[in-house]
Design a protein around this nucleic acid. Structure first.
Lengths: 193, 193
DNA sequence: AGTTTAAGATGATGGATATCATCTAAGGGA
DNA sequence: TCCCTTAGATGATATCCATCATCTTAAACT
């Protein structure tokens, strides 16, 4: 059956949003096209009317996911004017975020897979990372732009490494220790020096 | 055909070493049992005489890989007595390591997949991470053991996040920037304070 | 209103993959 | 030397999955 242009567009967006969550939960290869479509309330056949291939879906889902990340950080920054970086770090380094990758940081969830992915996917992610680093640099105290950018990179790498480690480890105490230590470390970077 | 006990043992180790490299390059799901055995000069049939399942192979390969990581860091520390942490960070944050995950850091290459893996795999990796953090803490300057441990965790998270980011990004300049900034940041942590 | 168009459903297809069953021949203990 | 054990080879099986072909039907355009 055919469906209105609007309905079709909504369906496409629904699939894309769902994919961006499932990929972060299970990895690219852990999500099948058929399962995804079914969970979106559709059948597998229509998939190729909306996307060129699974790779294409991956690229679009990653672009969406990382732009959602950026948007969320902007919101956090807006709601915490003077302590923007601290607010973002607290959120990213929380147990809640560690335990629910679905809507969380794309790099911590998919970084290694992205580095093996399609050029298109890598490019979308690269742009997203650059935007995030720009945002963080703008929020960092620092004598110069250069210093702010360096602090932003240092903070972002620490955050991502900590999430990755905290998720990999099966010992809750160690996992909490990692998150807490990273929070302290990033707070120090965000403090006026 | 049967083969001597020693030969069988050597074959098993060969498969394990190969697996630990290929997994880091392509991810768990990117490596098939049959391909692996073939590359090791065997056929797929013998696999289940040596391993219970692919999951079992993954757990053993991860244990081997991370213990190899630990060993390499110990060697680096031994060869750079006074600047052990700096030597380790320089190695891990080099372009060479970024461009060749096969024998490199297990967490940067497989962290997200480990967090979704078998309990056995996660446990082996957790122990490895703990050993590595202990080693780093022992090499860190710090007034107290606690401070040294915190510095070790901060440095390790920064290193891992930087490798992950540097590999994901498709812009060589940005990738180099990330590595360089992380090196500077870790050097500061490793300096006597 | 009639014709065209395209989203989505249904149902292949071909390839890959983990695992199992069976066969073999040589090692290792008697 | 003989027998039993077992690593590895060969081949089968069952499942999963990405992608394609075809069909249906209602939207969109004339």
């Amino acid at each position: 059956m055919k469906v209105s242009r609007q309905q079709a567009g909504e369906n496409r967006v629904r699939v894309l949003n769902l994919a961006s969550r499932r990929f972060r939960e299970r990895g690219f290869q852990g999500v099948s096209v058929a399962d995804l479509m079914q969970e979106a309330g559709l059948t597998h056949g229509g998939f190729y009317k909306q996307f060129e291939s699974k790779e294409d879906l991956i690229a679009q889902a990653c672009a969406l996911a990382i732009s959602d990340n950026l948007e969320a950080y902007k919101q956090l920054a807006a709601r915490n004017r003077r302590r923007a970086v601290k607010a973002i770090a607290t959120e990213l380094l929380s147990a809640i975020h560690r335990d629910d990758p679905a809507e969380g940081c794309v790099i911590a969830a998919l970084g290694a897979e992205v580095s093996r992915a399609d050029p298109a996917t890598r490019h979308q992610v690269t742009n997203g990372i650059n935007d995030i680093l720009d945002l963080l640099a703008g929020l960092m105290p620092g004598r110069s732009e250069k210093e702010a950018r360096q602090k932003a990179v240092a903070a972002y790498t620490t955050i991502i490494g900590a999430i990755l480690l905290a998720r990999a480890v099966d010992d809750p105490k160690m996992s909490d220790e990692i998150l807490k230590t990273a929070r302290t470390s990033v707070m120090a970077m965000a403090a006026v020096s």
